Amino acid sequence: MTPRQTDVALTPAQAFDALYEFCAPALVRQTYLLTGRRESARAAVERAFELAWQRWPEVARDRDPAGWVRATAYECALSPWHRFHPLRRPDPPPADAKDRELLDALLRLPPPYRRTLLLYDGVGLDLPETAAETEASTPAAARRLTRARAAVAERIPELADCRLLHRRLAELASTDRLRAARPTVVRSLGERRVRLWTRAAIALTASVVGATALTLRTAPTHFDKPPGPAQAVRGVPPRAALGPLSAKELALRAKLRQESAHGPERLLPVPG
């Protein structure tokens, strides 16, 4: 179901605000049944609408814009990274004992079963629409729905009646008066987030370009072949130690020492 269309052409901001005011309050309550945490549900819905505003030309032409936002909000709420969100903290349980019992039974279901049960018995989608939104085949969605109903009925036997289950889910979702932020706030947050990501992307690109330029400037322009491994030189005779001089060698040394400065073969400078 989409907001009532008028004959007056709406600006993109006005169309987004109309969709937000029509869907956000109920969607926050539905997402609360998925997470069991009020602030986490509100954050998931606001994030889904931020993404919708960033892709508004695509969402505005979608066959079911409300379904697009709902699917995105459920994906955000059930994301594995959502457990690290700073808003993920224990919430006080519902005041009514029956509401606490039903919420506990829902949160014990596997996330795909919980989502299928909420879409079919809570939101009121038919089986093909539920299968399409959960990205499953129709038989797979039917099996999930059957097992989810059986698990809830095992803990709360009176909810084996599907009509009673639908009514109890609607009552549980409307117990807490959960409010979403104003659409103008969500639009401004989405635009701010886009600007931050754009600046981060520009800074990262500039860093990569600078690192590439520095690498090109300092990188060698030719290839120097590395020296080969050292090899032992063979065939060189071992260095022998000098032994004692013979008598002939001693006489020769003494003669050379005596004639080193006065030998006839040596030329001496003549003064003057």
Rank of each mutant, 00 (worst) to 15 (best):
T72R: 02
A26I: 04
L51M: 13
T72G: 08
R42T: 12
A41T: 07
F49K: 03
R63A: 15
W56K: 01
A60T: 09
T31E: 05
R37F: 01
E46M: 09
V59L: 10
T72Y: 01
L78S: 02
G67W: 05
R55N: 15
V45D: 01
P65K: 10
V59H: 08
R42Y: 09
W56P: 10
P65Y: 06
A60K: 10
A43W: 08
R55V: 06
S40E: 07
T72W: 00
A41W: 01
V28M: 02
R37E: 02
R47K: 12
A71L: 08
P57Y: 14
A66I: 12
E75D: 15
L78V: 07
A26C: 02
Q54D: 12
V28C: 15
D64P: 03
D64T: 11
T31W: 00
W68V: 15
E39K: 08
W56Y: 14
E50F: 06
F49L: 04
A41L: 11
C76M: 08
R47P: 00
Q30C: 04
E39P: 00
R61F: 04
Y74P: 01
V59F: 14
L34P: 01
A71K: 02
R29Y: 07
R47G: 14
W68P: 01
R63I: 09
R37L: 03
L51G: 12
A52W: 01
G67K: 03
A48C: 13
A26D: 06
Y32G: 04
A52N: 11
V69C: 15
A43P: 01
A26Y: 01
V69S: 03
L33Q: 03
Q30F: 07
D62W: 09
L34G: 01
L34M: 03
T35L: 03
R55C: 10
G36N: 10
L51K: 13
V28A: 15
A52E: 06
A26R: 14
Y32F: 11
E50L: 07
C76F: 09
A71V: 11
